[in-house]
Design a protein around this nucleic acid. Sequence first.
RNA 1: GCGCCCGUAGCUCAGCUGGAUAGAGCGUUAGAUUCCGGAUCUAAAGGUCGGAGGUUCGAAUCCUCUCGGGCGUACCA
Length: 542
Amino acid sequence: MMKILSLLNQTLIKALSTLGYPDKEIKLSPSKNPEFGDISTSLPLILSKELKINPMQIGEEIKKVINQSEAMIDNITVTNPGFINFKISSSYYYQVLSDILSNNSYGVNKYGNGQKANVEFVSANPTGPLTVGHGRNAVLGDTVANILEWNGYEVTREYYFNDAGRQMRILGESVQFRYMELIGKKSDFPEDGYEGLYIIEIAKLIIKKHGKALKINDPKFKDFAEESIFKDIKKSLLNIGIEFDRFSNEKSFYENGQIDKFLSEMKSKDLIYEKDGATWFRSTSLGKDQDRVYIKSSGEPTYRVPDTVYHQDKINRGYNLIIDIFGADHADTYPDVLIALEALGLKTDHIHVLLYQFVTLLRAGEKVKMSTRKANFVTMDELVEEVNSDVLRYFFVMRGMNSHLNFDLDLATDQSEKNPVYYLQYAHARICNIIKRYESLDNPILNSYDSSLLQHQSELRLLKKLEQFPQIIENSRTTLEPQTIATYLYETANNFHKFYSDCRVITEDVDLTESRISLIQAVKIVLGNGLAILGITAPERM
RNA sequence: GCGCCCGUAGCUCAGCUGGAUAGAGCGUUAGAUUCCGGAUCUAAAGGUCGGAGGUUCGAAUCCUCUCGGGCGUACCA
């Protein structure tokens, strides 16, 4: 069945052409106030400017030429200062109910049409455990990937890490220092070394596995540390339901020659030059306000080089859509990657960078400055243990990514009990319970029901909310903002709870009971699907 | 200094491709259970949308300026 918004859109376009009015983009939105029907448009106000006709008059003209029954409209009103309001026929919403019940994946669409999308997220270098800060990135990325899947894309979840640079070298040296310390030998603690206790744990594991004979500068220190930390990172991610399809690393781009190839291409375009013993990217010639170092005088490339090559590689792999999830601290750096790629003649229109603002951690009302190096952090594992994966995932997604997220550690548990996620899950569990009760009364679930018995205001409101679900998913494709889904689910649960308190599902009235059972089954499907997108469980009981 | 993000109820935040009376949760106050799960529901109080200009029939939303906070402005990533 055609969705009401497309139907109204078509109807209005037809009306405009009938009246000889100019073609305008038509904005339809849910009515703010029930007395304005279900859906409204300010089309007359927009037209009046150009037509120089009173908007109320335009509204009346449009109303006159619309075939109401064809567009499933019960009633049209035109209200000041120039809105057209549509009251949609309830038979439309009754039809929606059967649509939902006949389709367990209600809400998916084929927009992406199987196109390939790549979502790169987390991408934390394996220098320590994942922290609460990484959590926001992880949850946003996985949820965005889910959103794309529900919009018909084939999604690759990818994790990129730097394993060739300074950070990893220092990690190896830090482990080496602890190792030597443990076996009673002296060595230097590296400048900017990692101070966390986990470094000592890794050193102990090395002793267990390789004994005490390792010498200074043995590559095993770094390799073992990297491997060990990565194992933990993967475990932490799995803990909140996140699994990657692909890991990419910096080192491979050195080994396969892509870095050299990139540098020589840039050179041939005169986009790099030497100064003060370093190699610079001439980004000022591409509109930036300053040039950036590509290769330090030490001979080590800056992260910019492998990052650019990595993106080049992703482009070459042929994705139709490439998403990067970055913290706000990258806001200034990713454009350098894009302009370099464009300078090499590559298209970057399909690369979308999603920036999220940082999580502000509070402890006793004081801001906590997190640093992996200084071992001043709260790990994601600790947090999941204190709350749980569902609460954590909802927490990170319930605010817009442009908002700074305040996280008070002292209140974490308190807040978790009040976390809205339980409100959603409770609605789902409640439905399951009613259905179970219904079945236990020896009533078969029938496929026949008379949805037109659903006349109560709470029932219709709930149905209208369910009808919006596919549209919500469609919209989330363009915004890639998980929060809108969280908000929608909250409203749906809210409408269900109101329905529950207004209308008893299981009554002596067999026909009405069957209709209401169908209704709550539909709610269950929508809540379940929405929670699945957010990566949150939909419990049968709590 | 410059660039990006934010500033909306006591607190945490929605609403921001301009539309009708600016919404929710928490907290506060007052209510609801002979009945499918009270982790629920109902109601009240609470606002010069940081401030000042401007554009418009219409601005929380767009523009300019300004104040306050975060982030960046590395030969760190």
